[in-house]
Design a binder for these strands. Structure first.
Length: 111
DNA sequence: ATAATGACTCCCC
DNA sequence: GGGGGAGCCATTA
């Protein structure tokens, strides 16, 4: 792994870990929370690596539309959906119902 | 150091 | 409302 820039991942992991159960957030929100609102793409990239972590509920992270875009990267096809449903979140066709209601905005972390 | 990739987001048609 | 293209950032080859 890199030496310094990896700090970005740490921020993402820490923030995703703070996501309350039964709540979801978007990559852009996380990116913004860590101080890089335009690094939404990198956030998703970090999530890919987050799979190595066990305390990082990546299933609570979806795109700004509330769609489980990354479900394909999970263990199974519906693993992500099932996990979210288990937390009380209703999902239909990979789309979180009441996403706005379940949406959880992370706190802005200063550099 | 340059080029290519990616779990995103925004703008335009 | 739906589809396509460009932009940005960090990592990897």
């Amino acid at each position: 792994m890199s030496k310094l820039p990896a700090d970005f991942y740490q921020k993402v992991y820490a923030l995703v870990r703070t996501i309350p159960k039964g709540r979801v957030t978007s990559y852009g929100a996380i990116a913004k929370a860590i101080g890089s609102p335009q690094s939404s793409r990198t956030v998703g990239y970090a999530m890919n690596a987050s799979h190595q972590q066990e305390d990082v509920p990546a299933h609570r992270v979806v795109n700004r539309n509330g769609v489980l875009t990354g479900k394909h990267h999970f263990s199974g096809t519906h693993a992500m959906q099932q996990l979210l449903e288990a937390e009380g979140i209703e999902i239909k066709d990979d789309q979180i119902q009441n996403f706005k209601k379940h949406f959880w905005e992370p706190e802005i972390q200063k550099a």
